[in-house]
């Protein structure tokens, strides 16, 4: 699968130049496609707005600061909500469990007295 047979510094330089160019080309293609999709998407949303009876200048653009403030407020509100509980109180009798940890029956020094 070798594209270049690399044996000298000149080959290395050529390989590097090709390599970085390909990286740029790959990402530049993505840029072009997504700039195009972005325009289509904005145009489509404008058309939807117009259909809904709103004029373009009526569309409110929310700034980043506003988005941050709203997000923080929502986060604080949602985190401050207490868990929902059933509000039913029960008194459950808890039997003392049998535990042989201190039982003299099982002791090693169970001498006859």
């Amino acid at each position: 699968m070798n594209i270049l047979v690399i044996s000298t510094l000149g080959d290395m330089l050529l390989g590097s130049a090709i390599g970085i160019s390909v990286v740029f080309i790959a990402l530049a293609c993505l840029v072009i496609i997504f700039e195009f999709i972005q325009r289509m998407s904005i145009n489509a949303s404008k058309k939807r707005m117009l259909k809904a009876g709103k004029k373009d200048h009526e569309v409110v653009h929310t700034s980043g600061d506003d988005v941050v403030a709203i997000s923080v407020a929502l986060h604080l509100f949602l985190n401050s909500v207490h868990d929902e509980e059933s509000n039913i109180l029960t008194i459950k009798h808890n039997d003392k469990r049998y535990s042989p940890w201190s039982s003299k029956i099982y002791g090693l020094n169970n001498f006859q007295r």
Binding site: V23, V31, F34, E35
Partner: peptide
């Protein structure tokens, strides 16, 4: 996606 030209910085 919102600002595709930033991809070039990654390149």
């Amino acid at each position: 996606i919102s600002n595709p030209k930033l991809m070039l910085l990654g390149a």
